[in-house]
């Protein structure tokens, strides 16, 4: 794979943003995530790959406690953001989610205007004091999401009227509008065509300069293209975790090798 060479980027592994230790997730009686230990570095794109149902999305949703909304889901173990346990009783998931933003598989803009979509986060968190400040934040986020030039003349048109790729970039703009520290992306390109995918991938690479990005993807090429570190999940276990180039060229586990060569998955 020629793509591999693109990912040979420096990784500063000393800055660990999220540490997960001994994480178990149960859906009712099903043990969905088993003994996962992982360190997610800051200002890096970390990719979770693995076959369908391996638990990569479930683990991603643990990182901002979105699993709290599923009543039968139970999480044990320790996940810390900057050394603070996010499952501590004192943590309000609402505050946590402002710090750990999320972009979903299917573009899900609110059925409101483009402006209101981006402005919603800053508004509910009281991050801006004036309308002008809010305008600035909205413009900034849309620019960083590489959407500004396409929508600047129709900010008050409904967000749902955009194309699929534009909608997903709008969702990314919405997610970064609350100035999160970590951005979780759950298969952000699976509903997009190759051109839109390329745009979003480019965007992810740029976001790396400010955030720690964690991306779940089905596409190994995508993981290879955008990520610096890759974790391979299989049947609820974290099989292998390391530098992307290393995982793809020289996997140490036979299951990883089978998956990336297309024999399982």
């Amino acid at each position: 794979m020629n793509d591999m060479t693109l990912t040979e980027k420096p990784v500063n592994a000393s800055d660990i943003k999220i540490t997960a230790r001994n994480v178990q997730v149960y859906y009712g009686t099903t043990h969905a995530i088993k003994d996962v230990d992982v360190d997610i570095p800051d200002r890096t794109v970390t990719a979770f790959i693995g076959p369908s149902g391996c638990g990569k999305s479930t683990f991603l949703r643990c990182l901002n406690r979105m699993n709290d909304t599923i009543s039968i889901c139970r999480v044990t173990g320790n996940i810390a953001l900057d050394g603070q346990d996010i499952y501590d009783k004192r943590v309000d998931p609402v505050q946590l989610r402002a710090k750990v933003g999320m972009v979903f598989q299917k573009p899900n803009p609110f059925p409101k205007s483009i402006y209101d979509n981006v402005a919603y986060g800053p508004k509910i968190h009281g991050m801006t004091r004036s309308r002008a400040e809010l305008d600035e934040v909205v413009e900034g986020c849309l620019r960083r999401a590489a959407l500004w030039n396409e929508v600047k003349d129709r900010l008050h048109a409904p967000g749902t009227g955009l194309s699929g790729g534009q909608q997903q970039r709008l969702c990314i703009a919405r997610a970064i509008a609350t100035s999160p520290e970590v951005l979780l992306m759950d298969e952000p390109c699976s509903a997009l065509d190759p051109i839109a995918t390329a745009q979003v991938e480019e965007l992810i690479d740029e976001l790396r300069s400010q955030f720690s990005v964690v991306i779940v993807t089905h596409s190994m090429q995508q993981a290879a293209r955008v990520s610096q570190r890759t974790a391979f999940f299989h049947l609820g276990n974290l099989v292998e975790y390391g530098e992307t180039g290393h995982i793809f060229t020289n996997p140490s586990d036979p299951r990883t090798e089978s998956y990336i060569t297309g024999r399982i998955g």
Partner: peptide, 22 residues
């Protein structure tokens, strides 16, 4: 659609906010 709830919760809206706003 649940995706609307997820969207609101994902950017840190409280449950009540996600219900009343969206």
């Amino acid at each position: 659609p649940p995706s609307i709830r997820d969207a609101a919760l994902g950017i840190g809206a409280s449950k009540l906010q996600s219900i009343f706003h969206h």
